[in-house]
Design a protein around this nucleic acid. Sequence first.
DNA 1: ATAAATGGGATGAATTTAGTCACCATTGGA
DNA 2: TCCAATGGTGACTAAATTCATCCCATTTAT
Lengths: 135, 135
Amino acid sequence: MQITRQSEYAIRTLVEMAKHAADETLSTQAIALRQEIPADFLKKTVKLLILARLVTTQRGINGGLRLARPAEEISLLDIITAVDGPIALNVCLAEGNNCKNQNSCSISAALAKAQDAMVNELAKISLASLAKANE
Amino acid sequence: MQITRQSEYAIRTLVEMAKHAADETLSTQAIALRQEIPADFLKKTVKLLILARLVTTQRGINGGLRLARPAEEISLLDIITAVDGPIALNVCLAEGNNCKNQNSCSISAALAKAQDAMVNELAKISLASLAKANE
DNA sequence: ATAAATGGGATGAATTTAGTCACCATTGGA
DNA sequence: TCCAATGGTGACTAAATTCATCCCATTTAT
């Protein structure tokens, strides 16, 4: 019932980026150093962020990462989902499940309600607000 | 980011019990059969429910399980916590963490907010309501 | 060319999860 | 009194997940 450490790394990475100018590129090395994240591991995390269209990258000297959209338009939910996949409090709430009783299952409905409450909160929190409070 | 299967087994077990009279004992075998839970695994789960004071047990012939309190007074949060331990959306929100920056950490605060939203919902859902909707 | 950067695959240790098995302890009833 | 049905407990295991580390290929500004 936890986000993965990789997910937390992604959050910290994006917060670090949001604290810099939007047109500035930051290398994974620099981020890894400042946030104390294993550099090689971060490279793999970045790949997930690219797939989720949260960052863009530039190879070569002076390359690095940039936010793909304004920090105001990236939510905590976006980041966690990008790394850990869709949030599902139980197997039966995950995509592609085939529990035939789902429609009439009071347990599934109850868990869905709690999950929605959490997801709604996560969607409300913007990367911009995290970066600002972290200055 | 999921409850464990063991936690779901516990929920189903207690719902099954809540559908019977409070003074009736149900054997783990009977519950395992009806809910399609591996019997030996369920025995281990029951131990956790006893420790959390959610059920009481009676050994010997005609023995089995009973709810330790009225189904109205047992919440989904009680059950999940009994089996999976306290809910913590991130390491830094778990008991005994020692992140020195926690007080000023905007990420930890944001995750705590989302977690609280979920926990509050889970606390609202009673075993009685789950059993009723499942009749 | 060279150095700095991302891209990507192979590998592995540690932990967690889910389950099985064997055997012990207790108890009520025949 | 003894048996069968019940819960109690610990050892063990297979599989999946998590969290890395290492190596080398590719791109690019100077």
